[in-house]
Structure formats: C-alpha cells, structure tokens
Simulated scan of single mutants.
Amino acid sequence: MRQRFRIGIMGTAKGPHIQALAKALQNTGAEVILVPPQRLTSFIPEPATIITGSDGYRENLRELDALLVRSLPGGSLEQVIYRVDVLHRLEKLGLKVINRAVVLEKTVDKFYTSALLGDAGLPVPRTVVTESFEQAMEGVKKMGRVVVKPLFGSLGTGMVLVEDQEVAYRVFRALELGRYVYYLQEFLPHNNEDYRLFVVGGEVISTMRRRGETWKTNIACGAVAEYVEPDPVLSRLALKTAELLGADYLGVDILISNGQPYIIEANGIPGWTGLQSVTPVKIADVLADYTVRQLQSGINKD
C-alpha cells in the first residue's frame, strides 16, 4: 500500500510558486501543510517545533515527512537567524529539509556564494567585498566599470552600474551612511543577455535565455525570457555549482562575456515564473516528484 506522505511547504499561501507546488504535491497523493515562517515556536529540552494559528491550530513539524523551503522572509537579524536555526534543528531531528539550511546560508549571501565558487575554481567575475570606503574606491580604479550589488537581495533590486570615480564617490558615501558592505563585481559585457539553468536532483531540467533592454537581465527588470536547449558547457557549470553547494534544487545564472562563461548567481530558493512561461517542463511537478522519490528511497533503504 502506497504511503501518503505529509509534506510541509515553508512560505505564505498567496505565493504563486507555493500554490503550484502544493497542487503538484497533492497530485502525488501527498498531504500538504503550509508552514508560515513567522509562526514557528520551539521548545527545549523537548525536541519540538510547532506552528500555530489564531484559531488554536497546532502542527508539530517533527510529524512531517519533509519540508520544502520556499520562503525565508526578511526581518531583524534575530528573526532571520532563528528561522534558519529551526531548519538546522529539524534536520538534526531527522526531518528531510529541501533545500537544507546550510545550502540556504551559502546562497542567500552573495559574498559567501561567490567565495565558495571562486575558491573551488569555478568561473566568477572579479569581485571586491569590503567595508572600507577607500578599498571600494580602489576597486573601481582597478576594475573600471563595476556592478555594485547588495549582499542580500534578488530580482536585480539595488544593483547599480558605476562607471567613473565621481559617481563611485557619491554612491559609496551614500552606502557608508547606511553601514552597508561594498560588494563590487567587474562589469562584463554580455549583450544584455544571460542564462538561467534550473537544476533538480543533479539534472538540468530546463534553461532559458534572458534578454534585457539594459545590462540588467532580470525578468523583474523587464527582460524577456526565451526557451533554449541546455548547453553542455553551461550545464556542467550549473551541475558543479549545485554539487558544490549541496543543493537539491538550484537556479544558476550564467552570462557569457568574450566567449567565456561566468557564474553570476546561485539561488537556493529560485523562482520559476519566467522560466515556466517558456518551457514545456512542469517545474513544480518535477520538484514535487523529486521530493516524493527522496522519501520513497529513504523508506526502501530502511
């Protein structure tokens, strides 16, 4: 008799990815439990973390078979760290978490991601990260045109192209007032296009090319998605990235400059609205099937 798995999705009900994933999981026969990250309550020494509702609803997360993380919303430093700590604890208590907390820690922080990839010999843009205004200015002097990015963020929000010392001075002084870290990457000419490769379970399941009217190629910034067959070279880079980070699934962004591919981002909670609009692959179904297979393989091993 086929076991009916109880699978949690961490996020809010209104999220389109969560709705698609919930439907896909239900189609496999799984029971889906929504896990709002703001409603986590943990107990010590009892090995328990629950979610609660205003109507008295309680759900012990240890009773789930798996938890798919689709949202870790911003908040205070304490709130963000606590939510990630809960994921670490649940894993240690035996819950299958996708993606694992360590993967999210590696991918939510652009510096950490770039350092891990670069130190492993994977191609990334030249990057300078510093809290020093003087070192940031020196980085512009050495690299010329640079893209200034927030350490945390997505969808292209907050990225600025700096092309001369005067603009750099004004931008960096403004960032200094907010106590931000300077994250600078050398601007690489890329014909206003790049590639998003979606990896699930060690396989590139689909790829799109994104074409922008400016250097920003994010769909949220107006770029247009186009389905392309996965390129073998780019696929190998994406799979190496997922393997290095230990990700069950991952969105990997790669641009090509002067014939050389560069990994510019790896997202541990990747969206797929743009990709889904151009690919025949049902991404939510693939992710749901992968999750169920992981649980079934665990039963078979036992």
Rank of each mutant, 00 (worst) to 15 (best):
P47V: 08
R58A: 12
V162N: 03
G121Y: 12
K92L: 09
P73D: 03
V278D: 04
G246T: 09
V160M: 08
P230E: 07
E226Y: 08
F43W: 06
M208Q: 08
Q26D: 08
E46P: 08
Q165A: 14
S154Q: 14
G259S: 07
E213M: 05
V80E: 04
V84A: 05
G298D: 13
P37E: 08
Q294Y: 13
L117D: 00
V124C: 03
A247V: 06
S297H: 13
G144H: 13
R100Q: 07
L177N: 00
V148M: 01
L87K: 02
Y262E: 01
V292S: 01
G153A: 05
I269R: 07
P270C: 12
P125H: 02
T12D: 11
F43Y: 08
T52A: 12
R83C: 04
G259I: 03
A24I: 09
V281T: 15
S154D: 10
V228S: 02
N192F: 10
V278Q: 08
S71L: 13
A223K: 04
Y112L: 13
I9C: 14
L255Y: 04
V147Q: 01
N192I: 15
V204E: 01
G53L: 09
G139Q: 01
A220Q: 10
L175W: 02
V228W: 05
T130S: 14
I81H: 13
Q296M: 15
V171G: 00
Q19E: 00
N191Y: 06
E59Q: 15
S132K: 02
N300E: 08
V286A: 06
Y195Q: 02
E193S: 09
F152G: 04
I299D: 15
E105D: 13
R4I: 13
D109R: 03
R2N: 15
R39W: 11
T207V: 00
P125L: 06
I299P: 09
P73L: 04
T52K: 13
K110M: 06
V233T: 12
P230V: 11
K142T: 13
D65K: 06
L234K: 04
D55V: 10
V128D: 01
D65E: 15
K240R: 14
A30M: 04
S235E: 11
G8P: 10
S42P: 10
G144M: 08
N267D: 15
F152Q: 02
Q185M: 05
